[in-house]
């Protein structure tokens, strides 16, 4: 069981054998784990110092010469501080840059609100040309990093700090940009999660089963483009949905799922996520409790959304 950031570092180091790409970091290579690539391929690693704006455009410029470039820092600095550089320097010119953003969400722990990015998915998702991926475990992380390197164009990858329980097994699944993965089938409610919340959705489904509620679980690592077909088919089947993310409920996975359902097949939706608040210091589990990112909250939301379904019918 690894954190997705550790899996990200390992993936870069591993994929560096197969693919020709550069990795840039802004003095956080130990935290982002790009250090694993740096050790193995020092000639293709550049530390850009604590200067994220320059790093993003520098990466874009390199990429125009015909090589994918990965630029890494914390989500708060990648999507936040360097937003304009990501927008105008990377996405607008459609540059082949992969933004490896670690420490997304509040469950990074004690660093506090300044470092807990709760709006990066919303920011990145709203930029044209941008693909947004948020894997849930080490195996999916490897697959997402590989898919991002193979894809021509800008990709934002979001990773967590703490170890994530394994959902998949090595080589046990395939990942495709634009496709979600059904973790378990169900008939009464569909739980859609990203990142660390996928395992919590899975645990919630097991608790719900004990009280006779059949919950489907979907891992939507490809937040953008999102798997509309899969979501609509489960919306039709189960009639209600709960989304779960370590991110603001505004503009993230919950926003994406709600938007597409309103347009295509309106049904009751409940969003588990940060309720439009900044983060704070604490242990990851204390923070999960404080911000309502728990299995219990997903169970509660499931019951509630099933209740709303009956009212609407």
């Amino acid at each position: 069981m690894l954190s997705t950031r550790e899996a990200y570092g390992l993936a870069l180091a591993n994929l560096g054998n197969q693919y020709d790409f550069y990795v840039l970091d802004a003095d956080l290579s130990k935290a982002t784990q790009t250090v694993q690539f740096a050790k193995k391929f020092p000639e293709r690693f550049l530390d850009m110092g604590i200067a994220e704006a320059n790093m993003m455009d520098f990466a874009a410029g390199m990429s125009t010469c015909g090589v994918p470039v990965v630029a890494s820092t914390f989500a708060a600095f990648a999507a936040g501080r360097a937003y304009d550089q990501v927008r105008n320097g990377i996405a607008y010119p459609d540059c082949n840059v992969k933004i490896g953003a670690t420490h997304g969400g509040v469950m990074i722990g004690a660093d506090g609100g300044s470092h807990q990015c709760v709006e990066d998915i919303a920011l990145m998702r709203a930029i044209p040309n941008m693909t947004v991926l948020c894997p849930c475990d080490e195996f999916e992380t490897y697959a997402c990093v590989k898919a991002a390197i193979e894809y021509q164009g800008p990709v934002y990858l979001r990773f967590g700090r703490m170890p994530s329980p394994n959902i998949y097994t090595e080589g046990g699944f395939t990942f495709q940009i634009g496709k979600g993965t059904v973790i378990s089938e169900g008939e009464d409610v569909t739980l859609i999660g990203i990142g660390d919340m996928v395992s919590r959705c899975f645990e919630a489904a097991m608790l719900l089963a004990k009280i006779g509620i059949s919950a489907a679980v979907i891992d939507m690592a490809s937040v953008k483009p999102i798997d509309e077909k899969l979501i609509i088919s489960f919306a039709k089947r189960t009639g209600c949905i709960v989304t779960a993310e370590d991110h603001n409920i505004i503009g993230g996975l919950g926003g994406a799922v709600s938007e597409l359902l309103v347009r295509n097949y309106p049904i009751p939706v409940e969003n588990i996520g940060i309720q439009d608040k900044f983060g704070k210091s604490g242990s990851p589990e204390e923070l999960a409790e404080y911000f309502g990112l728990t299995v219990e909250k997903i169970v509660e939301a499931s019951k509630k959304v099933i209740g709303r379904k009956k009212v609407i019918q």
Binding site: N54, D57, T64, V69, Q85, N88
Partner: peptide, 18 residues
């Protein structure tokens, strides 16, 4: 592509570094 000031010089530096 340029327009947002301060960014082109970084991109150019990236090309030179490549």
């Amino acid at each position: 592509s340029t327009g947002s000031l301060g960014q082109g010089i970084s991109a150019a530096a990236g090309m030179a570094c490549f």
